[in-house]
Amino acid sequence: MSSPHPSPKSPAASGTYSVTETAEPSRSAVVTRLRAAGCVFAEDEAALLIAAAPTPDDLAALIERRTAGHPLEHVLGWAEFGGLRVAVDPGVFVPRRRTEFLLDQAVALGRRLSGRTGRHIVAVDLCCGSGAVGAALAAALGGVELHACDIEPAAVRCARRNVAAAGGRVYEGDLFAPLPVHLQGRIDVLTANVPYVPTEEVGLLPPEAREHEPLVALDGGADGLDVLRRVTAAAPRWLAPGGHLLVETGERQAPRAMETFRRSGLIPRVATSDELYATVVIGTRPTDPTRPTGTTDPNGTKTA
């Protein structure tokens, strides 16, 4: 299984830091320590850590945490996601690079709905973690009624920092339970980055994930689809007619996930990205509840 964490983009290419000639010996020493600890992208990580540390003592503390196995994003306090620098606190699920594919799908659907209705869409980021998906969705669309929620208190505190800039609200609780009742039947785009690792495979995850991220954000039950089933069963009550639910899954899980969507009355389709090794199942609430599934969805896409 590949690492769940995004590899840092080349800092030199993005212009996010500069290393002077006088810093090169220190940088070489940092790279050596990181390599010895097993960091695959040691040079890029060294540059980011050096840029983040105002003093040598601060740098030593950051290196100590990273070489002890803490996720780079927890050490830095942020992650790049969807063109944003998203705050990520210790103990909070780190947004994955592959989840940017889910974001891209949500943005495309949101733009289509906004263009069709001429209004700002209503979006909910369920199982929001740091709030990265919701914050990036709002930034891309330029105007969203945004709500987000998570069951983990640390995630909620972190998400509130990221979502505030978009004028959104974050709630603490289990799935839909803490959301305002007035959102029922109004949600245009519902993203749910649910845990989908089967319980017996959690132990195969990289140590920085299984030791430093909450288990509730990783463990999806016996087949990895327990939380997905709960979300899908309740989603039709919350989605607006023609609204969309987007959930990330593993490639092997997609057929069962689609069947779950169908049983809940949603019109499913699967989108995949070979580049990001990402699979997203998208379910649309029919605008005509009497029309059977298995024909054509509201976007003109043939469904199984």
Rank of each mutant, 00 (worst) to 15 (best):
S3C: 12
P6F: 12
P8L: 05
A13E: 13
S14C: 10
T32N: 13
R35V: 08
A36C: 13
F41M: 15
E45D: 14
E45W: 08
A53T: 08
P56R: 10
P56N: 13
D57R: 11
R66L: 11
G69R: 03
L72A: 07
G82I: 13
G83W: 06
L84N: 12
V86D: 08
V88G: 06
D89E: 14
G91P: 09
G91L: 01
V92F: 04
V94W: 05
V94P: 01
T99N: 15
T99C: 10
E100D: 09
E100L: 12
Q105M: 08
V107A: 06
L109R: 13
S114G: 07
R116Q: 15
R116Y: 03
C128V: 06
G134I: 00
A139H: 02
A140H: 12
G142I: 01
A148R: 09
I151P: 04
I151L: 11
I151H: 12
A154V: 10
C158D: 09
C158P: 09
A159K: 02
A159T: 11
R160P: 03
N162H: 07
V163H: 06
V163D: 01
R169H: 03
L179E: 08
P180E: 10
L183Y: 00
R186G: 09
V189T: 05
A192L: 13
P195N: 02
E200Y: 15
E208A: 03
A217G: 02
A217I: 03
G220E: 08
A222F: 04
D223N: 14
G224P: 03
T232H: 00
A234I: 03
G242V: 02
G242W: 03
H244W: 08
L246P: 10
E248L: 06
Q253G: 01
A254R: 01
R256E: 05
A257S: 07
T260C: 02
R269Q: 04
D274T: 08
D274M: 05
A278V: 13
A278M: 11
V281Y: 02
G283R: 00
T284V: 04
R285S: 00
R285I: 00
T287V: 08
T290I: 01
R291K: 12
T293K: 00
G294H: 09
T296I: 14
N299I: 15
